[in-house]
Each structure stands twice: as C-alpha cells, then as structure tokens.
C-alpha cells in the first residue's frame, strides 16, 4: 500500500442486463480529497490500475456538499454520500476503497441507480400542504420555534435513499414504503394546515407496505446522514395509525368529524 496514490475498486455494470465486473483505479492522492474528487481524477484519465483503457465510471452527483442527496452509494459497504467520504478517513494508510451502487434500487449503470420509487412514495403519503393558491393570502399559521425546529430536522430529508438501502424490510419482494416517506407524513401532519389532511396520510400508511411493515431493526436512523429521528417518526406514525384505525372502526365518517373540528 502506498500513500502516494488513492486506489478505488469500482463495481462496474454497463446496464441492468449487463454482467458486473470490478475495475481498480489508482490516481495521485491530494490533500482533502474525497471519493468524488477522486472519481473526477479518474475520468480525466480513464485507465485502470493495470493500464487498461476503459470508460469513465458513471456516477450521480450535483452539490458536492451533502445537501442534494445525489451521490449516494456504498463506500466500503456503507450507505452514504460519496462527496463527504474523505479519503483520509477511508484510506489513512493507502487502503483501497470499494465503491458499489445501492443494491435495493434498479441499477441504471455503474454507480447510478433509479430511486424514483422514493418520489412516488411521497405522492402516496401526500407529502405537501394543499394550499388554496399562490395568491397573496397573508401569512401562514403562527408556530412556536420548537415546532419549527422539529419540523426543520425532518424537512432536511434529501431523499438520498440511505434509510431504504440499509432496511432489512426493503427488498424486491416487499412493498414496504420505508422510513423516509413515513417521516415525511409526520412532517406534514405536524403542520397546522397539513394536519387538516392528516387522515389521508394515515390511511396511506395503513395500506400494504405501510408503517406496520417496519421490522424495528433501527438501521435507518443510524444510516441517515441528516440525523433525522426516523425511528421516532415511525413510532409516532405507528401510534397515530393505530388510533386512526380504532376511530375508523367506531366512528362512521371519522374524517368528516375531523374536518368539522378543524373548521
């Protein structure tokens, strides 16, 4: 092992139907480098460590400061953003670093996967405030700084997919919606206006693949790069969904009652 170079082992696959292969790259090591800056070096000279010409690996990235959620991948098996994976941390003595695409999403190419199911899930839980229009209708409801802060943390979710990647309940045989969307339901239910449509979101979470499918492994909260209290969100939504189911059972048109209460 040398500290002069960074060695990346990249799992390559030209497309979903193509066979996977491993390629190793070795490029000069710079101070402060991260996995993406090294991938940038690789594409400036796409040659493997053994001198073989190859195509530049495909990877997703945009902001490079862990706020857009694009560059999620497995770095030495850990689900995270590649931009903040510092070479100094992963390879203090020149150890090779392994890069693989997320395994729980359809592969597009190399390190790029299709995470559109996460955006579809946001539709399912109706993760928005149904405003009346974009006209000047005055300020929104007053809110305590405490509520604003609690909502802010949940609202920093960048749909990066780490929580789904590490979840044992998320796999090709399961419809489990995953922690991100459940926490978004909580985010909107915690808003005074969003609360008016609370039951729509709770009903969505009662469906197959909803909150009851959580196996309580707790991996999501540890993997979340934004330290969102995902297990707290799941527990709270679980409770709410249970209450909702009880209410639905005993009170006919419980939604209508809620609407009247709110108006």
């Amino acid at each position: 092992m040398s500290k002069e170079n960074v060695v990346l082992r990249v799992k390559r696959q030209d497309g979903p139907q193509s066979p996977a292969r491993w390629e190793e790259f070795s490029v000069p090591r710079h101070a402060g480098a991260n996995v993406l800056s090294v991938l940038m070096q690789v594409r400036e000279n796409p040659v493997t460590a053994s001198g073989q010409k190859t195509t530049p690996p495909a990877w997703d990235a945009a902001c490079l400061e862990e706020v857009c959620g694009s560059c999620s991948m497995l770095v030495n098996g850990r689900a995270r953003q590649a931009c903040t994976a510092l070479i100094e941390t992963y390879s203090p003595n020149g150890e090779p670093i392994t890069l693989e695409p997320f395994s729980k999403f359809p592969l597009v190419r190399d390190l790029v996967v299709d995470r559109s199911r996460m955006f579809e899930s946001l539709k399912k839980v109706r993760a928005w405030i149904p405003i009346d229009g974009t006209y000047d209708l005055g300020p929104g409801p007053r809110m305590s700084q405490k509520t604003a802060e609690e909502r802010y943390v949940m609202s920093t979710c960048m749909t990066c997919g780490c929580c789904l990647e590490v979840c044992p309940q998320v796999n090709t045989h399961s419809p489990f919606i995953g922690a991100a969307a459940i926490s978004q339901a909580r985010l909107f239910n915690a808003h005074p206006t969003g609360q008016l449509n609370e039951s729509e979101r709770l009903h969505a979470l009662m469906e197959p693949g909803g909150v009851a499918d959580c196996g309580k492994a707790g991996n999501c909260v540890q993997a979340c790069p934004k330290e969102i209290p995902l297990t707290t969100s799941i527990a709270e939504m679980n409770r709410e969904v249970t209450w909702k189911a009880v209410k639905d059972f005993f009170v006919r048109d419980s939604d209508d009652h809620e609407k009247k209460d709110a108006s």
Binding site: D136, P139, G140, S144, S155
Partner: peptide
C-alpha cells in the same frame, strides 16, 4: 408569506412570527 403557507419551516420569533 406564500412560502410560509406552503409549510417552509422558517425560524420563528418568541411570538411565533417569522
């Protein structure tokens, strides 16, 4: 105010205003 209505978690004053 529109963004506030859309649910942006803006920081608040002690009175609950923006």
């Amino acid at each position: 105010y529109l963004l506030d209505r859309m649910g942006v978690p803006f920081s608040r004053t002690s009175e609950g205003l923006l």
